[in-house]
Protein backbone atom coordinates (compact mmCIF):
# COMPACT_ATOMS: atom_id res chain seq x y z
CA UNK A 1 0.00 0.00 0.00
CA UNK A 2 2.48 2.61 -1.16
CA UNK A 3 0.14 4.73 -3.27
CA UNK A 4 -2.76 6.83 -2.09
CA UNK A 5 -5.93 4.84 -1.38
CA UNK A 6 -8.51 5.15 -4.13
CA UNK A 7 -5.95 5.92 -6.83
CA UNK A 8 -6.56 2.56 -8.46
CA UNK A 9 -10.30 3.20 -8.49
CA UNK A 10 -9.83 6.58 -10.19
CA UNK A 11 -7.32 5.14 -12.67
CA UNK A 12 -9.89 2.51 -13.61
CA UNK A 13 -12.50 5.18 -14.26
CA UNK A 14 -9.99 7.09 -16.39
CA UNK A 15 -9.30 4.02 -18.53
CA UNK A 16 -12.95 3.42 -19.37
CA UNK A 17 -13.55 7.13 -20.05
CA UNK A 18 -10.55 7.28 -22.37
CA UNK A 19 -11.74 4.22 -24.26
CA UNK A 20 -15.16 5.88 -24.63
CA UNK A 21 -13.62 8.79 -26.53
CA UNK A 22 -11.65 6.57 -28.92
CA UNK A 23 -13.12 5.05 -32.07
CA UNK A 24 -14.39 1.51 -31.67
CA UNK A 25 -12.20 -1.13 -33.28
CA UNK A 26 -15.18 -3.16 -34.50
CA UNK A 27 -14.97 -4.29 -38.14
CA UNK A 28 -18.38 -3.94 -39.79
CA UNK A 29 -17.76 -7.14 -41.74
CA UNK A 30 -20.90 -7.96 -43.70
CA UNK A 31 -21.39 -4.25 -44.47
CA UNK A 32 -17.73 -3.43 -45.09
CA UNK A 33 -15.29 -5.86 -46.68
CA UNK A 34 -12.41 -6.71 -44.37
CA UNK A 35 -9.01 -5.32 -45.28
CA UNK A 36 -7.07 -8.57 -45.57
CA UNK A 37 -3.38 -8.94 -46.44
CA UNK A 38 -3.07 -9.86 -50.16
CA UNK A 39 -1.66 -13.33 -49.48
CA UNK A 40 -4.13 -14.37 -46.80
CA UNK A 41 -4.82 -18.07 -46.58
CA UNK A 42 -8.49 -18.25 -47.47
CA UNK A 43 -9.06 -21.25 -49.71
CA UNK A 44 -6.93 -23.55 -51.88
CA UNK A 45 -7.16 -23.31 -55.68
CA UNK A 46 -6.25 -26.06 -58.15
CA UNK A 47 -4.67 -25.47 -61.53
CA UNK A 48 -5.74 -28.76 -63.09
CA UNK A 49 -3.39 -28.72 -66.10
CA UNK A 50 -0.37 -28.50 -63.79
CA UNK A 51 -1.35 -31.59 -61.80
CA UNK A 52 0.53 -34.80 -62.67
CA UNK A 53 -1.31 -36.97 -60.13
CA UNK A 54 1.92 -37.51 -58.21
CA UNK A 55 -0.21 -37.79 -55.03
CA UNK A 56 2.37 -35.95 -52.93
CA UNK A 57 -0.24 -33.52 -51.59
CA UNK A 58 -2.67 -36.31 -50.66
CA UNK A 59 0.06 -38.23 -48.86
CA UNK A 60 1.45 -35.22 -47.00
CA UNK A 61 -1.95 -33.89 -45.93
CA UNK A 62 -2.01 -34.26 -42.10
CA UNK A 63 -5.73 -34.95 -41.91
CA UNK A 64 -6.15 -36.76 -45.21
CA UNK A 65 -8.67 -34.41 -46.67
CA UNK A 66 -7.48 -34.59 -50.30
CA UNK A 67 -9.04 -37.31 -52.45
CA UNK A 68 -7.43 -38.03 -55.84
CA UNK A 69 -8.44 -40.52 -58.50
CA UNK A 70 -6.90 -40.99 -61.94
CA UNK A 71 -6.63 -43.37 -64.84
CA UNK A 72 -3.85 -44.05 -67.33
CA UNK A 73 -4.03 -43.10 -70.99
CA UNK A 74 -1.81 -44.28 -73.79
CA UNK A 75 -0.10 -41.57 -75.74
CA UNK A 76 1.07 -42.72 -79.14
CA UNK A 77 4.07 -40.72 -80.25
CA UNK A 78 4.73 -41.13 -83.96
CA UNK A 79 8.14 -42.65 -84.55
CA UNK A 80 8.58 -43.81 -80.97
CA UNK A 81 9.37 -47.47 -80.30
CA UNK A 82 6.27 -48.00 -78.15
CA UNK A 83 3.29 -46.08 -76.79
CA UNK A 84 3.77 -44.00 -73.67
CA UNK A 85 1.44 -43.67 -70.74
CA UNK A 86 0.33 -40.64 -68.81
CA UNK A 87 -1.92 -40.09 -65.80
CA UNK A 88 -5.19 -38.30 -66.33
CA UNK A 89 -6.85 -36.67 -63.33
CA UNK A 90 -10.42 -37.92 -62.72
CA UNK A 91 -11.12 -36.61 -59.26
CA UNK A 92 -9.43 -34.02 -57.09
CA UNK A 93 -11.48 -33.16 -53.99
CA UNK A 94 -10.49 -31.15 -50.94
CA UNK A 95 -12.76 -31.51 -47.95
CA UNK A 96 -12.67 -28.07 -46.29
CA UNK A 97 -14.60 -29.37 -43.31
CA UNK A 98 -11.45 -31.35 -42.45
CA UNK A 99 -8.76 -29.05 -43.86
CA UNK A 100 -6.79 -27.24 -41.19
CA UNK A 101 -5.22 -24.72 -43.59
CA UNK A 102 -1.66 -25.78 -42.85
CA UNK A 103 -0.68 -25.28 -46.50
CA UNK A 104 1.58 -28.33 -46.63
CA UNK A 105 -0.08 -29.54 -49.87
CA UNK A 106 0.77 -26.22 -51.51
CA UNK A 107 4.33 -26.31 -50.19
CA UNK A 108 4.87 -29.85 -51.35
CA UNK A 109 3.37 -29.57 -54.87
CA UNK A 110 6.35 -29.77 -57.31
CA UNK A 111 4.42 -28.35 -60.25
CA UNK A 112 2.59 -25.37 -58.75
CA UNK A 113 -0.80 -26.97 -59.19
CA UNK A 114 -2.09 -25.74 -55.79
CA UNK A 115 -2.27 -22.09 -54.68
CA UNK A 116 -3.55 -20.07 -51.76
CA UNK A 117 -6.22 -17.49 -52.50
CA UNK A 118 -7.53 -14.87 -50.04
CA UNK A 119 -11.22 -15.69 -50.71
CA UNK A 120 -12.91 -16.85 -47.52
CA UNK A 121 -16.68 -16.55 -48.09
CA UNK A 122 -17.54 -20.16 -48.88
CA UNK A 123 -19.44 -21.07 -45.71
CA UNK A 124 -22.20 -23.64 -46.22
CA UNK A 125 -25.27 -24.64 -44.28
CA UNK A 126 -24.56 -28.30 -45.06
CA UNK A 127 -21.20 -29.65 -44.01
CA UNK A 128 -21.11 -32.00 -47.00
CA UNK A 129 -21.08 -29.03 -49.35
CA UNK A 130 -17.65 -28.09 -48.02
CA UNK A 131 -16.19 -30.86 -50.21
CA UNK A 132 -14.93 -28.87 -53.19
CA UNK A 133 -14.41 -30.89 -56.38
CA UNK A 134 -11.85 -30.07 -59.05
CA UNK A 135 -14.22 -27.79 -60.96
CA UNK A 136 -14.89 -25.72 -57.86
CA UNK A 137 -11.21 -25.74 -56.89
CA UNK A 138 -10.39 -24.68 -60.44
CA UNK A 139 -12.79 -21.73 -60.21
CA UNK A 140 -10.80 -20.38 -57.29
CA UNK A 141 -7.80 -19.97 -59.66
CA UNK A 142 -9.28 -16.67 -60.87
CA UNK A 143 -8.76 -15.21 -57.39
CA UNK A 144 -5.13 -16.25 -56.94
CA UNK A 145 -3.01 -13.11 -56.60
CA UNK A 146 -0.05 -12.84 -59.01
CA UNK A 147 3.20 -14.13 -57.55
CA UNK A 148 5.45 -11.54 -55.95
CA UNK A 149 8.03 -9.92 -58.21
CA UNK A 150 11.54 -11.30 -58.26
CA UNK A 151 14.09 -9.78 -55.93
CA UNK A 152 16.06 -7.39 -58.15
CA UNK A 153 19.19 -8.04 -56.11
CA UNK A 154 18.80 -11.83 -56.17
CA UNK A 155 20.46 -14.30 -58.50
CA UNK A 156 18.82 -14.68 -61.95
CA UNK A 157 16.79 -17.82 -62.44
CA UNK A 158 18.55 -20.94 -63.67
CA UNK A 159 16.76 -20.78 -67.04
CA UNK A 160 17.80 -17.18 -67.62
CA UNK A 161 21.41 -17.86 -66.60
CA UNK A 162 21.67 -20.92 -68.87
CA UNK A 163 20.24 -19.04 -71.84
CA UNK A 164 22.65 -16.17 -71.27
CA UNK A 165 25.62 -18.52 -70.99
CA UNK A 166 24.70 -20.36 -74.13
CA UNK A 167 24.31 -17.11 -75.98
CA UNK A 168 27.71 -15.86 -74.82
CA UNK A 169 29.46 -19.03 -75.94
CA UNK A 170 31.86 -21.34 -74.02
CA UNK A 171 34.26 -19.84 -71.50
CA UNK A 172 32.11 -16.77 -70.81
CA UNK A 173 31.06 -15.59 -67.38
CA UNK A 174 28.68 -17.91 -65.51
CA UNK A 175 25.85 -16.93 -63.23
CA UNK A 176 27.92 -17.90 -60.22
CA UNK A 177 30.68 -15.53 -61.32
CA UNK A 178 28.46 -12.56 -62.14
CA UNK A 179 25.86 -12.74 -59.39
CA UNK A 180 27.80 -10.96 -56.69
CA UNK A 181 30.99 -8.92 -56.65
CA UNK A 182 33.86 -11.02 -55.37
CA UNK A 183 34.37 -10.54 -51.68
CA UNK A 184 37.59 -8.69 -50.91
CA UNK A 185 39.19 -10.17 -47.85
CA UNK A 186 41.11 -7.57 -45.84
CA UNK A 187 44.71 -8.48 -45.24
CA UNK A 188 45.25 -9.45 -41.60
CA UNK A 189 46.73 -6.64 -39.56
CA UNK A 190 46.22 -4.02 -42.30
CA UNK A 191 44.28 -1.57 -40.17
CA UNK A 192 46.62 -1.66 -37.22
Amino acid sequence: MSETPGKGLLDGLAVTLKTLTKRATTQQYPDVEPDLPPRSRGVIALSEENCTVCMLCARECPDWCIYIDSHKEEVVVPGAARARQRNVLDKFDIDFSLCMYCGICIEVCPFDALHWTPEFEYAETDVLSLLHDKTRLGEWMRTVPPPPAHDVLGEPSKEEATAARKAAGPGAATAAKTARPAAVRPRPGADR
Binding site: T16, L17, T19, L20, K22, A24, T25, T26, Q28
Partner: peptide, 13 residues
Protein backbone atom coordinates in the same frame (compact mmCIF):
# COMPACT_ATOMS: atom_id res chain seq x y z
CA UNK B 1 -24.03 2.30 -26.35
CA UNK B 2 -21.86 3.75 -23.56
CA UNK B 3 -20.87 0.33 -22.29
CA UNK B 4 -20.02 -0.81 -25.82
CA UNK B 5 -17.85 2.21 -26.58
CA UNK B 6 -16.12 1.99 -23.19
CA UNK B 7 -15.15 -1.55 -24.22
CA UNK B 8 -14.03 -0.52 -27.72
CA UNK B 9 -17.17 -1.92 -29.38
CA UNK B 10 -20.02 -0.18 -31.19
CA UNK B 11 -23.02 -1.81 -29.51
CA UNK B 12 -26.35 -2.41 -31.28
CA UNK B 13 -26.25 -1.08 -34.85
Amino acid sequence: KVMAHMQGRVGPM
